[in-house]
């Protein structure tokens, strides 16, 4: 909603509002709390995953990194946090290939993307 930015420039947007609209529609008349509930679940679960990403990078636990990135990738995509999801996907792919290059950049980027996404989501949650 917010009516602020045109749709389509998803990578730059912390939250893809089309996804949010989709969730609102999915809830419809009989499950109007779905959107708020899903955002709540995401906001409650994501900080632990972000911490796992940071922990995995710091300790070199590549499997923890992969698992956390995988989980956060789909959770964030579900609430329209496309930028976060895309960063997580890259982390997951690199971790799965047992690589390490760019992880030092990507993990902090994911933290930033999370902060931006969370603030938009909290405003939607109201």
């Amino acid at each position: 909603m917010n009516g602020s930015k045109p749709a389509g420039d998803q990578a730059a947007d912390p939250i893809d509002m089309q996804v949010i609209e989709g969730l609102r529609e999915l809830g419809g008349q009989d499950d109007p709390g779905l959107l708020v509930e899903v955002i709540g679940m995401f906001l409650a679960d994501a900080p632990a995953r972000i911490r796992d990403l940071e922990l995995g990078l710091a300790s070199g636990d590549i499997e923890l990194l992969e698992r956390a990135a995988h989980s956060l990738k789909s959770a964030s995509a579900n609430v329209g946090a496309s930028k976060l999801s895309s960063i997580c996907r890259q982390i997951e792919e690199i971790a799965r290939a047992k690589g390490s290059e760019r992880l030092a950049e990507l993990v902090p980027e994911s933290g930033q993307a999370w902060d931006e996404a969370a603030s938009v989501l909290r405003s939607i949650q109201g």
Binding site: L26, L34, E37, V38, M41, D45, S74, A75, N78, V79
Partner: peptide
């Protein structure tokens, strides 16, 4: 295992 996806799938 990811609660948001599961909730949406169920819905």
């Amino acid at each position: 295992d990811e609660p948001v996806s599961l909730r949406l799938l169920e819905r």
